[in-house]
Structure formats: structure tokens, C-alpha cells
Design a protein around this nucleic acid. Structure first.
Lengths: 138, 138
DNA sequence: ACATTATGGATGTACATTGTCCATAATTGT
DNA sequence: ACAATTATGGACAATGTACATCCATAATGT
């Protein structure tokens, strides 16, 4: 039940960018600043680009920009860009057992967990994350 | 963000036992009934025993019994018996970066997720899981 | 004594995550 | 046109760990 390091990288990168929403950041700058392996960050940014969270520009002075304002990007967007749809349990052994055993007693619970988690992620915008962390500083 | 198969096995096993709370079940019966590899189930049961969720007896007619009634066992107990304390994020690169970067903007969110998840698990007893699944049948 | 059952350790395997390397394409300034 | 810069994309390697298997041993009941 752990967030992947990859998602952590993505959130960190976008948080970093969120501080100056209009600026273009080179992959190199993000990588160095956030201590993320450059070539690995490349893969991550690719997903964020194809999912429409950031725009990219090749060439000198190229890099990445947020497509939306930090108040319009929430953690669910980021999560799903990286991991796909949030699933807590995969109904293991689907074909075999689940058919055999009436209704699985677990599913409703994990679904409640899923729903509540999605709600929290959805309610948390990049903007708020940043505001909150600044507030914590004082 | 997935439940481990191991936890699934544990929940399944305990659910199975919860239907007849006083009966002693052999590992073999549980394994066959729930389609869990016998020797792997052994490891799982071991943890449940040491965490006090079930009691074991060696020898003929031996096996496992729940130590508490299904209404006193909740999913948090089971989760923690198998996985240890619930953690969503591990504050990666602890020593290096987290010191550098003010307060991590992510932590509060993941903590909210953690809290809410723990609450749901705590609120769900074995008993209720079973009742609910029977209700779904009709 | 024997059959049954759990315990404990050692070991293996398969798979996904994470990370690395490199060649190429796009863009910009000169 | 050229050189420098930057992202893109594919292939590959390392690693970790969850899941599984095997076997020898200890406990217990008949």
C-alpha cells in the first residue's frame, strides 16, 4: 500500500513547476533541483505531456510548462496520469474463485477505500498543496 | 496502490473462518477451500498467530481458531498483522532531499489518505463484512 | 508407535519498478 | 547553413520483493 517512487517524482516535479506557473522548465533543471535521475524523469514527463498536464517544447530554451493553473490541477489528475485508474484490489484469480464464492466479502470495503481516496486526491489541488506547505514553514 | 495478494489471502481465510467462529480449521481445509497455496498459507497463518488473531493447535484435529469473535476483529487488525503499520509514502530519499526542501508539500495529503483509510478499515469488522456479503446474495 | 498437523528455515522464481544509455528529431540563435 | 541545445523514443540492465515451493522437524491425539 505504497505510493510509487515514480508518482512521488511526478508530484514533486509538478509542485516545483507550480511555484512559477508560466515559466518553462528544462528537464535538467527539474531533475537537478528535485534529485530525480534525468533519463528517468524523461519517461515521467512524457506521460504528463501525453496526458495533457504539461506542454513541451524541444530545442534551446525548451522544456516543460504547466498547461493549466495550479488551482486546476489536482492530485487525481497526477495520479491517473502516472498510474492509470486507481484500483485497490484486482479481484485476484478472477475467473476461478470469484465465480465460486458467492459475493466476495472484501470488495465493498476496498471500494469504500477507493472512493474516499479518490475524493481526497480530487480535493487537493497543486495550488493548495503549495499554499499549505508555505503555511507550514512559518 | 494495490492490496497485496498476501493480504487478500489473509482476509479470505479469516472470512472463511468467521462463518463458524468456534470451529477449528486445518490449514489444508482453508487452503483448498480458498484456493491458496498450502505452504504459503502456512506463512500467513503464522503471522496471524503471532499477532494474536488466531490460535493454533498441532496434531490430529489441530488447526486454527479465531481468538476473538468476528465482531471484534476488524480489517485494520488484519492489515497490520500482515503488512505492519499502514504507510502510504515512505518519505523517499529521507536524509538527502527532505532536509533541503522546506516542508514536503505531499506529506499532508498522503497523511489524510492514510487516516481516512485506517478509519474505514477500523470500522469494518469481519462480522459486518460477512453480513454484508450475505445480504448481497438475496 | 503411528498418523496427523503445524512450524521454521532455506531457497527459488517471476515480474514490475526503477534506472541507464544512446541515437535521433526538433528548435533556436548566429 | 551550422552549431548548440533540448526533448523524444527505444532498448536494455539492475534490482527488489512478493509470491511460491520444498523439506525436515516438532507437537499432539488415537
Amino acid at each position: 500500500m505504497q505510493i510509487s517512487r515514480t508518482l512521488d517524482y511526478a508530484v514533486r516535479s509538478l509542485s516545483y513547476m507550480g511555484k512559477k506557473p508560466i515559466v518553462t522548465f528544462s528537464m535538467k533543471e527539474i531533475a537537478e533541483n528535485q534529485h530525480i535521475p534525468l533519463n528517468y524523469l524523461a519517461k515521467i514527463m512524457r506521460r504528463l505531456v501525453t496526458r495533457g498536464l504539461v506542454r513541451s517544447r524541444v530545442g534551446p530554451d525548451g522544456g516543460y510548462v504547466l498547461t493549466k493553473s495550479p488551482s486546476e490541477i489536482n492530485l487525481r489528475h497526477i495520479y491517473e496520469a502516472i498510474e492509470g485508474e486507481l484500483r485497490i484490489i484486482d479481484c485476484m484469480d478472477k475467473d476461478k474463485i470469484c465465480a465460486l464464492y458467492e459475493t466476495c466479502p472484501q470488495l465493498p470495503v476496498w471500494d469504500r477505500v477507493r472512493i474516499s481516496m479518490i475524493k481526497i486526491l480530487e480535493d487537493t489541488t497543486l495550488d493548495e498543496m503549495l499554499k499549505q506547505s508555505r503555511r507550514d514553514l512559518t
